[in-house]
Nucleic acid binder design. Structure first.
Lengths: 257, 257
DNA sequence: TACACCACCGTTGCATGCAAGCGGCGGCGC
DNA sequence: GCGCCGCCGCTTGCATGCAACGGTGGTGTA
Protein backbone atom coordinates (compact mmCIF):
# COMPACT_ATOMS: atom_id res chain seq x y z
CA UNK A 1 0.00 0.00 0.00
CA UNK A 2 2.27 2.74 1.35
CA UNK A 3 0.39 5.98 1.25
CA UNK A 4 1.32 9.46 2.42
CA UNK A 5 -0.80 11.32 4.90
CA UNK A 6 -2.15 13.78 2.33
CA UNK A 7 -3.01 10.86 0.16
CA UNK A 8 -4.98 9.21 2.91
CA UNK A 9 -6.75 12.46 3.77
CA UNK A 10 -7.70 12.99 0.15
CA UNK A 11 -9.01 9.48 -0.09
CA UNK A 12 -11.26 10.07 2.86
CA UNK A 13 -12.62 13.29 1.39
CA UNK A 14 -13.23 11.54 -1.91
CA UNK A 15 -15.08 8.82 -0.09
CA UNK A 16 -17.24 11.41 1.62
CA UNK A 17 -17.95 13.15 -1.67
CA UNK A 18 -18.90 9.76 -3.08
CA UNK A 19 -21.16 9.13 -0.11
CA UNK A 20 -19.20 6.07 0.84
CA UNK A 21 -18.43 7.49 4.24
CA UNK A 22 -21.41 8.59 6.31
CA UNK A 23 -21.61 11.32 8.93
CA UNK A 24 -20.80 10.11 12.40
CA UNK A 25 -18.73 7.23 11.09
CA UNK A 26 -15.76 6.32 13.18
CA UNK A 27 -12.29 6.31 11.65
CA UNK A 28 -10.05 4.20 13.83
CA UNK A 29 -6.36 4.88 13.69
CA UNK A 30 -5.28 1.27 13.72
CA UNK A 31 -8.04 0.43 11.28
CA UNK A 32 -6.81 2.92 8.70
CA UNK A 33 -3.21 2.04 9.43
CA UNK A 34 -3.94 -1.56 8.48
CA UNK A 35 -5.87 -0.58 5.38
CA UNK A 36 -3.17 1.71 4.04
CA UNK A 37 -0.26 -0.35 5.25
CA UNK A 38 1.39 2.37 7.30
CA UNK A 39 1.90 3.03 10.96
CA UNK A 40 -0.52 4.90 13.17
CA UNK A 41 1.75 7.92 13.02
CA UNK A 42 1.04 8.55 9.37
CA UNK A 43 -2.67 7.95 9.86
CA UNK A 44 -2.74 10.37 12.76
CA UNK A 45 -1.17 12.97 10.53
CA UNK A 46 -3.85 12.42 7.93
CA UNK A 47 -6.59 12.62 10.54
CA UNK A 48 -5.07 15.79 11.93
CA UNK A 49 -5.16 17.30 8.46
CA UNK A 50 -8.80 16.33 8.04
CA UNK A 51 -9.76 17.77 11.38
CA UNK A 52 -8.08 21.01 10.39
CA UNK A 53 -10.20 21.01 7.26
CA UNK A 54 -13.25 20.67 9.44
CA UNK A 55 -14.26 17.32 8.04
CA UNK A 56 -13.76 15.15 11.09
CA UNK A 57 -13.68 15.65 14.83
CA UNK A 58 -11.65 13.95 17.49
CA UNK A 59 -13.16 12.92 20.77
CA UNK A 60 -10.41 12.53 23.32
CA UNK A 61 -9.30 8.98 23.76
CA UNK A 62 -12.48 7.78 22.08
CA UNK A 63 -11.82 8.15 18.43
CA UNK A 64 -12.06 10.20 15.26
CA UNK A 65 -15.52 10.75 13.86
CA UNK A 66 -16.84 12.22 10.67
CA UNK A 67 -18.71 15.41 11.52
CA UNK A 68 -22.49 15.37 11.87
CA UNK A 69 -23.43 18.93 11.09
CA UNK A 70 -26.35 20.42 12.98
CA UNK A 71 -29.02 22.35 11.15
CA UNK A 72 -27.27 25.56 12.17
CA UNK A 73 -24.05 24.19 10.69
CA UNK A 74 -25.92 23.30 7.54
CA UNK A 75 -27.25 26.81 7.26
CA UNK A 76 -23.76 28.17 7.66
CA UNK A 77 -22.22 25.82 5.15
CA UNK A 78 -24.74 26.66 2.48
CA UNK A 79 -24.38 30.35 3.22
CA UNK A 80 -20.63 30.03 2.81
CA UNK A 81 -20.99 28.19 -0.47
CA UNK A 82 -23.40 30.78 -1.76
CA UNK A 83 -21.04 33.58 -0.86
CA UNK A 84 -17.98 31.97 -2.37
CA UNK A 85 -19.57 30.66 -5.52
CA UNK A 86 -21.62 33.73 -6.29
CA UNK A 87 -18.65 35.93 -5.50
CA UNK A 88 -16.57 33.82 -7.83
CA UNK A 89 -19.03 34.13 -10.69
CA UNK A 90 -19.47 37.85 -10.20
CA UNK A 91 -15.73 38.41 -10.11
CA UNK A 92 -15.19 36.53 -13.34
CA UNK A 93 -14.60 38.80 -16.27
CA UNK A 94 -14.80 36.46 -19.20
CA UNK A 95 -14.38 32.78 -19.76
CA UNK A 96 -12.36 31.54 -22.67
CA UNK A 97 -13.34 28.69 -24.95
CA UNK A 98 -10.98 26.20 -23.33
CA UNK A 99 -12.64 26.70 -19.97
CA UNK A 100 -16.08 26.15 -21.40
CA UNK A 101 -14.81 23.03 -23.08
CA UNK A 102 -13.42 21.72 -19.84
CA UNK A 103 -16.62 22.41 -17.96
CA UNK A 104 -18.69 20.76 -20.67
CA UNK A 105 -16.40 17.76 -20.49
CA UNK A 106 -17.09 17.56 -16.81
CA UNK A 107 -20.80 17.71 -17.40
CA UNK A 108 -20.46 14.98 -19.99
CA UNK A 109 -18.95 12.79 -17.31
CA UNK A 110 -21.81 13.66 -15.00
CA UNK A 111 -24.26 12.54 -17.67
CA UNK A 112 -22.38 9.31 -18.18
CA UNK A 113 -22.49 8.67 -14.46
CA UNK A 114 -26.21 9.38 -14.44
CA UNK A 115 -26.71 6.70 -17.07
CA UNK A 116 -24.51 4.30 -15.14
CA UNK A 117 -25.34 2.77 -11.81
CA UNK A 118 -22.41 3.97 -9.75
CA UNK A 119 -24.19 6.15 -7.22
CA UNK A 120 -20.90 7.10 -5.60
CA UNK A 121 -19.31 8.38 -8.77
CA UNK A 122 -22.49 10.27 -9.59
CA UNK A 123 -22.49 12.03 -6.24
CA UNK A 124 -18.81 12.76 -6.49
CA UNK A 125 -19.01 14.33 -9.92
CA UNK A 126 -22.04 16.39 -9.02
CA UNK A 127 -20.19 17.90 -6.10
CA UNK A 128 -16.91 18.13 -7.93
CA UNK A 129 -18.50 20.32 -10.57
CA UNK A 130 -18.36 23.22 -8.18
CA UNK A 131 -14.74 22.57 -7.32
CA UNK A 132 -13.91 22.27 -10.99
CA UNK A 133 -15.68 25.54 -11.68
CA UNK A 134 -13.60 27.34 -9.08
CA UNK A 135 -10.44 25.86 -10.53
CA UNK A 136 -11.42 26.82 -14.05
CA UNK A 137 -12.24 30.33 -12.95
CA UNK A 138 -8.67 30.53 -11.83
CA UNK A 139 -8.61 30.37 -8.09
CA UNK A 140 -7.06 27.28 -6.60
CA UNK A 141 -7.30 28.68 -3.09
CA UNK A 142 -11.04 28.93 -3.29
CA UNK A 143 -11.24 25.59 -5.05
CA UNK A 144 -9.74 24.01 -1.96
CA UNK A 145 -12.16 25.85 0.26
CA UNK A 146 -15.04 24.73 -1.89
CA UNK A 147 -13.88 21.14 -1.80
CA UNK A 148 -14.21 21.08 1.95
CA UNK A 149 -17.45 23.00 1.87
CA UNK A 150 -18.87 20.59 -0.67
CA UNK A 151 -17.81 17.64 1.45
CA UNK A 152 -19.64 19.28 4.29
CA UNK A 153 -22.84 19.82 2.35
CA UNK A 154 -22.64 16.27 1.06
CA UNK A 155 -22.54 15.03 4.64
CA UNK A 156 -25.46 17.30 5.43
CA UNK A 157 -27.40 15.92 2.52
CA UNK A 158 -26.76 12.41 3.77
CA UNK A 159 -27.76 13.33 7.29
CA UNK A 160 -30.96 15.09 6.36
CA UNK A 161 -31.77 12.94 3.39
CA UNK A 162 -31.81 15.41 0.58
CA UNK A 163 -34.52 14.84 -1.94
CA UNK A 164 -32.92 16.83 -4.70
CA UNK A 165 -32.60 14.75 -7.81
CA UNK A 166 -29.24 14.10 -9.42
CA UNK A 167 -30.61 14.61 -12.90
CA UNK A 168 -31.97 18.00 -11.91
CA UNK A 169 -28.60 19.03 -10.52
CA UNK A 170 -26.89 18.05 -13.73
CA UNK A 171 -29.42 19.97 -15.79
CA UNK A 172 -28.82 23.02 -13.68
CA UNK A 173 -25.09 22.68 -14.17
CA UNK A 174 -25.69 22.68 -17.90
CA UNK A 175 -27.67 25.88 -17.69
CA UNK A 176 -25.02 27.56 -15.60
CA UNK A 177 -22.27 26.70 -18.04
CA UNK A 178 -24.44 27.78 -20.95
CA UNK A 179 -24.98 31.14 -19.34
CA UNK A 180 -21.26 31.47 -18.71
CA UNK A 181 -20.46 30.56 -22.28
CA UNK A 182 -22.85 33.26 -23.43
CA UNK A 183 -21.01 35.68 -21.21
CA UNK A 184 -24.16 36.29 -19.21
CA UNK A 185 -22.61 36.24 -15.77
CA UNK A 186 -25.58 37.87 -14.13
CA UNK A 187 -27.79 35.04 -15.23
CA UNK A 188 -25.19 32.46 -14.31
CA UNK A 189 -25.09 33.86 -10.80
CA UNK A 190 -28.84 33.76 -10.51
CA UNK A 191 -28.90 30.18 -11.74
CA UNK A 192 -26.19 29.20 -9.30
CA UNK A 193 -28.03 30.80 -6.44
CA UNK A 194 -31.17 28.93 -7.40
CA UNK A 195 -29.20 25.71 -7.79
CA UNK A 196 -27.71 25.89 -4.32
CA UNK A 197 -31.11 26.86 -3.00
CA UNK A 198 -32.67 23.77 -4.57
CA UNK A 199 -30.12 21.50 -3.00
CA UNK A 200 -30.60 23.14 0.35
CA UNK A 201 -34.37 23.08 0.15
CA UNK A 202 -34.27 19.40 -0.57
CA UNK A 203 -33.49 18.85 3.06
CA UNK A 204 -35.72 21.41 4.62
CA UNK A 205 -38.56 18.96 4.92
CA UNK A 206 -36.93 17.06 7.72
CA UNK A 207 -36.56 20.23 9.68
CA UNK A 208 -40.14 20.50 10.87
CA UNK A 209 -40.42 16.80 11.58
CA UNK A 210 -40.11 15.87 15.23
CA UNK A 211 -36.99 13.96 16.31
CA UNK A 212 -38.98 10.83 17.13
CA UNK A 213 -40.13 10.41 13.56
CA UNK A 214 -36.58 10.90 12.44
CA UNK A 215 -35.42 8.20 14.78
CA UNK A 216 -38.17 5.87 13.61
CA UNK A 217 -37.05 6.47 10.03
CA UNK A 218 -33.50 5.79 10.98
CA UNK A 219 -34.42 2.52 12.62
CA UNK A 220 -36.58 1.35 9.75
CA UNK A 221 -35.71 -2.07 8.30
CA UNK A 222 -33.06 -1.91 5.64
CA UNK A 223 -35.34 -2.23 2.67
CA UNK A 224 -34.91 0.35 -0.08
CA UNK A 225 -32.28 2.11 1.94
CA UNK A 226 -29.78 4.15 -0.03
CA UNK A 227 -27.15 3.43 2.55
CA UNK A 228 -23.60 3.36 1.25
CA UNK A 229 -21.81 0.02 1.02
CA UNK A 230 -20.13 0.24 4.38
CA UNK A 231 -18.31 -2.67 5.95
CA UNK A 232 -20.80 -2.96 8.77
CA UNK A 233 -23.72 -1.15 10.33
CA UNK A 234 -21.79 0.53 13.07
CA UNK A 235 -23.38 2.76 15.61
CA UNK A 236 -24.06 6.29 14.69
CA UNK A 237 -21.35 8.19 16.42
CA UNK A 238 -20.31 10.22 19.41
CA UNK A 239 -22.73 11.68 21.88
CA UNK A 240 -21.68 15.21 21.18
CA UNK A 241 -23.21 15.01 17.75
CA UNK A 242 -23.68 18.73 17.45
CA UNK A 243 -20.47 19.71 19.14
CA UNK A 244 -18.68 22.74 17.82
CA UNK A 245 -16.87 22.19 14.55
CA UNK A 246 -13.17 21.41 14.96
CA UNK A 247 -11.50 24.60 13.97
CA UNK A 248 -13.58 26.55 16.45
CA UNK A 249 -10.76 25.92 18.87
CA UNK A 250 -9.33 28.95 17.17
CA UNK A 251 -10.35 31.56 19.65
CA UNK A 252 -12.43 34.36 18.26
CA UNK A 253 -10.14 37.24 17.45
CA UNK A 254 -7.78 37.51 20.34
CA UNK A 255 -4.70 39.62 19.95
CA UNK A 256 -1.28 38.05 20.24
CA UNK A 257 0.41 37.82 23.59
CA UNK B 1 4.60 25.70 29.08
CA UNK B 2 2.60 22.74 27.89
CA UNK B 3 0.66 23.72 24.81
CA UNK B 4 -1.61 21.77 22.54
CA UNK B 5 -0.94 21.53 18.84
CA UNK B 6 -3.83 23.83 17.88
CA UNK B 7 -2.55 26.29 20.40
CA UNK B 8 0.89 26.28 18.89
CA UNK B 9 -0.52 26.61 15.39
CA UNK B 10 -2.64 29.56 16.42
CA UNK B 11 0.32 31.20 18.05
CA UNK B 12 2.25 30.96 14.82
CA UNK B 13 -0.59 32.46 12.81
CA UNK B 14 -0.91 35.27 15.32
CA UNK B 15 2.78 35.92 15.04
CA UNK B 16 2.47 36.10 11.27
CA UNK B 17 -0.46 38.47 11.51
CA UNK B 18 1.62 40.58 13.88
CA UNK B 19 4.52 40.51 11.42
CA UNK B 20 6.73 38.86 13.96
CA UNK B 21 7.32 35.91 11.68
CA UNK B 22 8.60 36.70 8.23
CA UNK B 23 8.07 34.81 4.98
CA UNK B 24 10.70 32.18 4.37
CA UNK B 25 11.47 31.85 8.05
CA UNK B 26 12.38 28.41 9.20
CA UNK B 27 10.39 26.73 11.96
CA UNK B 28 12.52 23.95 13.40
CA UNK B 29 10.71 21.12 15.13
CA UNK B 30 13.14 20.82 18.01
CA UNK B 31 13.28 24.59 18.29
CA UNK B 32 9.54 24.92 18.77
CA UNK B 33 9.46 21.86 20.97
CA UNK B 34 11.89 23.52 23.32
CA UNK B 35 10.03 26.82 23.28
CA UNK B 36 6.66 25.30 24.05
CA UNK B 37 7.96 22.61 26.35
CA UNK B 38 6.50 19.67 24.47
CA UNK B 39 7.91 16.87 22.39
CA UNK B 40 8.51 17.03 18.68
CA UNK B 41 5.41 14.95 18.12
CA UNK B 42 3.09 17.71 19.25
CA UNK B 43 5.02 20.31 17.30
CA UNK B 44 4.84 18.17 14.19
CA UNK B 45 1.09 18.01 14.60
CA UNK B 46 0.92 21.79 14.82
CA UNK B 47 3.12 22.18 11.77
CA UNK B 48 1.01 19.69 9.87
CA UNK B 49 -2.07 21.73 10.71
CA UNK B 50 -0.39 24.90 9.50
CA UNK B 51 0.73 23.30 6.28
CA UNK B 52 -2.85 22.19 5.70
CA UNK B 53 -3.94 25.78 6.14
CA UNK B 54 -1.44 26.77 3.49
CA UNK B 55 0.64 28.91 5.80
CA UNK B 56 3.84 26.91 5.84
CA UNK B 57 5.55 24.41 3.58
CA UNK B 58 7.68 21.44 4.39
CA UNK B 59 10.80 20.68 2.44
CA UNK B 60 11.65 17.03 2.88
CA UNK B 61 14.25 16.42 5.52
CA UNK B 62 15.25 20.06 5.40
CA UNK B 63 12.69 21.85 7.46
CA UNK B 64 9.42 23.71 7.71
CA UNK B 65 9.33 27.15 6.16
CA UNK B 66 6.82 29.96 6.17
CA UNK B 67 5.50 30.38 2.66
CA UNK B 68 6.93 33.01 0.37
CA UNK B 69 4.10 33.72 -2.02
CA UNK B 70 4.98 34.53 -5.59
CA UNK B 71 3.35 37.45 -7.34
CA UNK B 72 0.92 35.02 -8.92
CA UNK B 73 0.08 33.70 -5.47
CA UNK B 74 -0.42 37.24 -4.27
CA UNK B 75 -2.81 37.92 -7.10
CA UNK B 76 -4.75 34.81 -6.21
CA UNK B 77 -4.87 35.57 -2.52
CA UNK B 78 -6.21 39.05 -3.05
CA UNK B 79 -8.71 37.77 -5.57
CA UNK B 80 -9.91 35.23 -3.04
CA UNK B 81 -10.23 37.84 -0.33
CA UNK B 82 -12.15 40.11 -2.64
CA UNK B 83 -14.53 37.34 -3.57
CA UNK B 84 -15.16 36.20 -0.03
CA UNK B 85 -15.41 39.61 1.58
CA UNK B 86 -17.51 41.22 -1.11
CA UNK B 87 -19.72 38.15 -1.24
CA UNK B 88 -20.09 38.34 2.49
CA UNK B 89 -21.14 41.98 2.42
CA UNK B 90 -23.55 41.46 -0.42
CA UNK B 91 -25.13 38.48 1.28
CA UNK B 92 -25.70 40.39 4.48
CA UNK B 93 -29.28 41.50 4.91
CA UNK B 94 -29.08 43.82 7.85
CA UNK B 95 -26.72 44.39 10.71
CA UNK B 96 -28.07 44.88 14.20
CA UNK B 97 -26.86 47.45 16.65
CA UNK B 98 -24.83 44.99 18.69
CA UNK B 99 -22.78 44.06 15.65
CA UNK B 100 -22.06 47.67 14.83
CA UNK B 101 -21.02 48.22 18.42
CA UNK B 102 -18.67 45.30 18.30
CA UNK B 103 -17.10 46.44 15.06
CA UNK B 104 -16.71 49.98 16.39
CA UNK B 105 -15.06 48.55 19.48
CA UNK B 106 -12.61 46.77 17.25
CA UNK B 107 -11.86 49.95 15.40
CA UNK B 108 -11.34 51.73 18.68
CA UNK B 109 -8.67 49.19 19.49
CA UNK B 110 -7.11 49.79 16.09
CA UNK B 111 -6.96 53.49 16.85
CA UNK B 112 -5.40 52.85 20.22
CA UNK B 113 -2.78 50.67 18.57
CA UNK B 114 -2.11 53.39 16.03
CA UNK B 115 -1.39 55.83 18.83
CA UNK B 116 0.80 53.27 20.57
CA UNK B 117 4.11 52.01 19.29
CA UNK B 118 3.42 48.30 19.10
CA UNK B 119 3.76 47.73 15.38
CA UNK B 120 2.89 44.06 15.78
CA UNK B 121 -0.40 44.69 17.54
CA UNK B 122 -1.25 47.35 14.99
CA UNK B 123 -0.71 44.98 12.10
CA UNK B 124 -2.60 42.23 13.85
CA UNK B 125 -5.66 44.33 14.55
CA UNK B 126 -5.73 45.77 11.07
CA UNK B 127 -5.84 42.29 9.61
CA UNK B 128 -8.11 40.92 12.28
CA UNK B 129 -10.75 43.48 11.42
CA UNK B 130 -11.65 41.44 8.39
CA UNK B 131 -11.85 38.23 10.38
CA UNK B 132 -13.95 39.97 12.98
CA UNK B 133 -16.25 41.28 10.29
CA UNK B 134 -16.83 37.80 8.94
CA UNK B 135 -17.55 36.53 12.42
CA UNK B 136 -19.94 39.37 13.11
CA UNK B 137 -21.72 38.79 9.87
CA UNK B 138 -22.40 35.34 11.14
CA UNK B 139 -20.19 32.95 9.30
CA UNK B 140 -17.50 31.26 11.33
CA UNK B 141 -16.51 29.02 8.44
CA UNK B 142 -15.61 31.97 6.28
CA UNK B 143 -13.99 33.72 9.21
CA UNK B 144 -11.55 30.83 9.41
CA UNK B 145 -10.91 31.01 5.70
CA UNK B 146 -10.34 34.71 5.95
CA UNK B 147 -7.93 34.31 8.81
CA UNK B 148 -5.67 32.17 6.67
CA UNK B 149 -6.12 34.42 3.68
CA UNK B 150 -5.26 37.45 5.76
CA UNK B 151 -2.17 35.74 7.10
CA UNK B 152 -1.23 35.10 3.53
CA UNK B 153 -1.69 38.67 2.41
CA UNK B 154 0.21 39.86 5.45
CA UNK B 155 3.13 37.70 4.38
CA UNK B 156 2.81 39.08 0.89
CA UNK B 157 2.85 42.60 2.22
CA UNK B 158 6.03 41.82 4.14
CA UNK B 159 7.63 40.23 1.15
CA UNK B 160 6.82 43.00 -1.29
CA UNK B 161 7.05 45.82 1.22
CA UNK B 162 3.60 47.26 1.10
CA UNK B 163 3.50 51.00 1.28
CA UNK B 164 -0.10 51.24 2.36
CA UNK B 165 -0.37 53.27 5.52
CA UNK B 166 -1.87 51.83 8.67
CA UNK B 167 -3.79 55.00 9.43
CA UNK B 168 -5.38 54.91 5.99
CA UNK B 169 -6.44 51.33 6.51
CA UNK B 170 -8.07 52.19 9.79
CA UNK B 171 -9.86 55.16 8.26
CA UNK B 172 -11.20 52.89 5.54
CA UNK B 173 -12.42 50.44 8.12
CA UNK B 174 -14.32 53.25 9.76
CA UNK B 175 -15.98 54.18 6.50
CA UNK B 176 -16.96 50.58 5.82
CA UNK B 177 -18.56 50.16 9.21
CA UNK B 178 -20.32 53.48 8.85
CA UNK B 179 -21.80 52.40 5.56
CA UNK B 180 -22.89 49.13 7.12
CA UNK B 181 -24.46 50.93 10.04
CA UNK B 182 -26.39 53.08 7.60
CA UNK B 183 -27.58 49.92 5.91
CA UNK B 184 -25.90 50.98 2.71
CA UNK B 185 -24.43 47.62 1.78
CA UNK B 186 -23.80 48.61 -1.78
CA UNK B 187 -21.54 51.39 -0.68
CA UNK B 188 -19.90 49.19 1.93
CA UNK B 189 -19.03 46.68 -0.77
CA UNK B 190 -17.59 49.39 -2.95
CA UNK B 191 -15.52 50.70 -0.07
CA UNK B 192 -14.28 47.25 0.78
CA UNK B 193 -13.29 46.60 -2.80
CA UNK B 194 -11.40 49.89 -2.85
CA UNK B 195 -9.81 49.08 0.49
CA UNK B 196 -8.48 45.73 -0.63
CA UNK B 197 -7.39 47.36 -3.85
CA UNK B 198 -5.40 49.96 -1.96
CA UNK B 199 -3.62 47.37 0.10
CA UNK B 200 -2.82 45.37 -3.00
CA UNK B 201 -1.65 48.38 -4.98
CA UNK B 202 0.71 49.29 -2.18
CA UNK B 203 2.93 46.49 -3.32
CA UNK B 204 2.58 46.84 -7.05
CA UNK B 205 5.49 49.19 -7.22
CA UNK B 206 8.03 46.52 -6.57
CA UNK B 207 6.69 44.55 -9.48
CA UNK B 208 8.26 46.65 -12.17
CA UNK B 209 11.54 47.06 -10.34
CA UNK B 210 14.31 44.80 -11.54
CA UNK B 211 15.40 41.94 -9.26
CA UNK B 212 18.86 43.44 -8.75
CA UNK B 213 17.47 46.53 -7.08
CA UNK B 214 15.34 44.36 -4.91
CA UNK B 215 18.37 42.35 -3.87
CA UNK B 216 20.33 45.49 -3.14
CA UNK B 217 17.51 46.69 -0.92
CA UNK B 218 17.41 43.39 0.83
CA UNK B 219 21.14 43.49 1.51
CA UNK B 220 21.10 47.06 2.73
CA UNK B 221 22.60 47.64 6.20
CA UNK B 222 20.10 47.15 8.99
CA UNK B 223 19.42 50.79 9.69
CA UNK B 224 15.76 51.80 9.88
CA UNK B 225 14.73 48.27 9.09
CA UNK B 226 11.27 47.28 10.27
CA UNK B 227 12.42 43.72 10.75
CA UNK B 228 10.66 41.79 13.46
CA UNK B 229 12.55 40.94 16.65
CA UNK B 230 13.77 37.58 15.50
CA UNK B 231 16.35 35.57 17.39
CA UNK B 232 18.89 35.86 14.64
CA UNK B 233 19.22 36.94 11.03
CA UNK B 234 18.85 33.55 9.48
CA UNK B 235 19.03 32.95 5.82
CA UNK B 236 16.03 33.50 3.69
CA UNK B 237 14.68 30.06 3.13
CA UNK B 238 14.47 27.13 0.81
CA UNK B 239 15.53 27.25 -2.76
CA UNK B 240 12.08 26.52 -4.11
CA UNK B 241 10.86 29.90 -2.95
CA UNK B 242 7.97 29.95 -5.35
CA UNK B 243 7.13 26.30 -5.12
CA UNK B 244 3.52 25.31 -5.31
CA UNK B 245 1.52 25.91 -2.15
CA UNK B 246 1.16 22.88 0.13
CA UNK B 247 -2.38 21.80 -0.49
CA UNK B 248 -1.75 21.57 -4.21
CA UNK B 249 -0.91 17.97 -3.60
CA UNK B 250 -4.63 17.58 -3.79
CA UNK B 251 -4.93 16.42 -7.31
CA UNK B 252 -7.19 18.54 -9.49
CA UNK B 253 -10.56 16.87 -9.61
CA UNK B 254 -9.87 13.21 -9.98
CA UNK B 255 -12.69 10.81 -9.36
CA UNK B 256 -12.47 8.28 -6.55
CA UNK B 257 -10.89 4.92 -7.16
C1' DT C 1 -35.06 -7.03 40.28
C1' DA C 2 -32.60 -2.85 39.91
C1' DC C 3 -28.81 -0.11 40.83
C1' DA C 4 -24.12 0.93 41.76
C1' DC C 5 -19.40 -0.21 41.71
C1' DC C 6 -15.26 -2.24 39.79
C1' DA C 7 -12.10 -4.29 36.71
C1' DC C 8 -10.88 -5.16 32.07
C1' DC C 9 -10.27 -3.93 27.26
C1' DG C 10 -9.64 -1.02 23.53
C1' DT C 11 -8.40 3.32 22.01
C1' DT C 12 -5.93 7.51 21.69
C1' DG C 13 -1.99 10.86 23.43
C1' DC C 14 2.57 11.48 23.50
C1' DA C 15 7.59 10.69 24.01
C1' DT C 16 11.40 8.54 22.34
C1' DG C 17 14.55 6.02 19.28
C1' DC C 18 16.44 5.04 15.05
C1' DA C 19 17.20 5.51 10.17
C1' DA C 20 17.47 8.20 5.94
C1' DG C 21 18.52 12.27 3.38
C1' DC C 22 20.07 16.91 2.43
C1' DG C 23 23.62 20.59 2.98
C1' DG C 24 27.91 22.10 4.11
C1' DC C 25 32.75 21.65 4.42
C1' DG C 26 37.11 19.96 3.96
C1' DG C 27 40.32 17.50 1.25
C1' DC C 28 42.02 15.94 -3.00
C1' DG C 29 43.01 15.90 -7.77
C1' DC C 30 43.62 18.50 -11.96
C1' DG D 1 43.73 28.27 -8.22
C1' DC D 2 39.63 25.95 -9.20
C1' DG D 3 36.37 22.42 -9.26
C1' DC D 4 34.77 17.99 -7.73
C1' DC D 5 33.90 14.31 -4.51
C1' DG D 6 33.19 12.16 -0.18
C1' DC D 7 32.26 12.57 4.75
C1' DC D 8 29.79 14.41 8.71
C1' DG D 9 26.28 16.68 11.24
C1' DC D 10 21.73 18.24 11.65
C1' DT D 11 17.06 17.70 10.56
C1' DT D 12 13.02 15.39 9.46
C1' DG D 13 10.22 10.76 8.65
C1' DC D 14 8.34 7.16 10.80
C1' DA D 15 7.60 3.18 13.87
C1' DT D 16 7.05 1.63 18.29
C1' DG D 17 6.21 1.57 23.27
C1' DC D 18 3.95 2.96 27.22
C1' DA D 19 0.60 5.41 29.91
C1' DA D 20 -3.92 7.43 30.61
C1' DC D 21 -8.60 7.34 29.99
C1' DG D 22 -13.42 6.25 28.35
C1' DG D 23 -16.67 2.57 27.79
C1' DT D 24 -18.60 -1.86 28.78
C1' DG D 25 -19.78 -5.90 31.02
C1' DG D 26 -19.95 -8.44 35.13
C1' DT D 27 -20.70 -8.84 39.91
C1' DG D 28 -22.19 -7.70 44.44
C1' DT D 29 -25.63 -5.59 47.29
C1' DA D 30 -29.93 -3.28 48.79
Amino acid sequence: MQASSSHIADRVVEAILARRIAPGMRLGEQQLATIFGVSRTVVREALTRLSERGVITVSTRRGWYVIEPSLADAEQAFAARRIVELGLLRATQDVDAATVTRLRAHIARERAALRGDDVGLRSFLLGDFHVCLAECLGNGLLADVLRDLTARTTLIAMLYQSTHDAADSCAEHVEIVDALARGDHEHASALMEAHIGHVQQGLRRETTVDPLTQLRDALAPVGASSAPPNPSPRRRGPRHASARPPRSQTRPSKEPA
